[in-house]
């Protein structure tokens, strides 16, 4: 496209973001500040993820964009079109074919392989924020590894609801050091963070922070000895592909109480149906 640099951002900006990414990969889970740019979309629509994708995208990379697991929702479609126009890269909906996957809320059900990069859009990068409003203080707490307050939140959950009621953005400890907010993925996806062969990058556009989990890094979800970490489970199976082990969305089909449970990962669901048929 005329008048734009490849992948929208200018080369200096991409270089700056790549430098920050290198630091983030070197210190797994540590939030690196970066000079976030204005993007042609509002904050909250994935400006952080888009900047990271723009910085790492190569001309022959194949891009996949998902939003809540689906390739066909508004956010996913518009970001995919954006990169088609400003970078002219090939796009795909197949998890296995993609080199770079930008995601919001999910990690694909299909296991990722070495060499793939998963880019997360992050709204609130600071896991300590809910209990400590001061940025200066939270940075100090990270530096000194003062993570007792993270368990205060989990304690409070159990005291109120009888179990750990945090179901998304469930805090994790990366490589035994930094406590990290894995962005609003459901805790169902937390085990996939641990030892994943793909590189995982997290970008928060409004807060201008990025962080990373390098491939094959140890990632533990925080819990109590007598209330261990558990993922969600469903009594139903996917109404379309019959999967009994994927993350299901409840979809209301009419106004008479009709509903169905379907895989949130559309590519996974379609692939399974193709195999069955």
């Amino acid at each position: 496209m005329d008048g734009y640099n490849f992948a929208y951002l200018d080369e200096q900006t991409k270089r700056m973001i790549r430098r920050a990414l290198l630091k983030a990969v070197a210190i797994p889970g540590y939030q690196v500040p970066f000079g976030g740019r204005e993007m042609p979309m509002p904050y909250g629509w994935g400006t952080g993820g888009v900047q990271l994708t723009a910085s790492i995208l190569g001309a022959d990379d194949i891009l996949k964009v998902i939003d809540q697991g689906a390739d066909d929702t508004t956010n996913a479609v518009s970001i995919r079109h954006f990169f088609q126009r400003v970078a002219g890269v090939e796009t795909t909906t197949a998890t296995t074919a993609a080199d770079v996957i930008q995601t919001r809320h999910r990690i694909p059900e299909t296991p990722l392989r070495s060499g793939q990069i998963l880019v997360f859009q992050v709204p609130i990068p600071e896991p300590l924020r809910f209990i400590e409003p001061s940025e200066q203080e939270t940075r100090l707490m990270h530096a000194l590894e003062e993570y007792g307050v993270m368990h205060v939140k989990l304690y409070e959950d159990i005291a109120r609801y009888g179990h750990i009621a945090t179901t998304y953005a469930y805090p994790v400890k990366v490589d035994g050091r930094y406590v990290m907010d894995p962005s609003p993925i459901p805790k169902f996806d937390n085990p996939k963070l641990d030892g994943n062969p793909a590189l995982m990058l997290f970008g928060a556009g409004r807060e201008k922070r990025l962080y990373a989990i390098p491939p094959y890094t140890r990632v533990e979800s925080l819990d109590f000895e007598d209330h261990p970490f558990e993922i969600q489970s469903w009594e139903h199976t996917c109404a379309l592909c019959g999967s009994d082990h994927s993350y299901l969305d409840e979809v209301i089909t009419d106004d008479k109480g009709g509903r169905m449970f379907v895989c949130s990962d559309t590519d996974y669901c379609q692939t399974r149906r193709g195999e069955v048929a």
Binding site: I131, E146, G148, V149, H151, V152, K153, Y155, E156, I158, A159, R160, D223, F224, E225, D226, H227
Partner: peptide
């Protein structure tokens, strides 16, 4: 911490010391 329960307030220092057993904290 005014936002969390009395029990969480009392337990905070213990959790900071690394106690990770909900029943004992309570």
């Amino acid at each position: 911490r005014m936002g969390v329960s009395a029990g969480a307030n009392i337990g905070e220092r213990l959790m900071a010391q690394g106690q990770r057993h909900y029943g004992q904290l309570r």
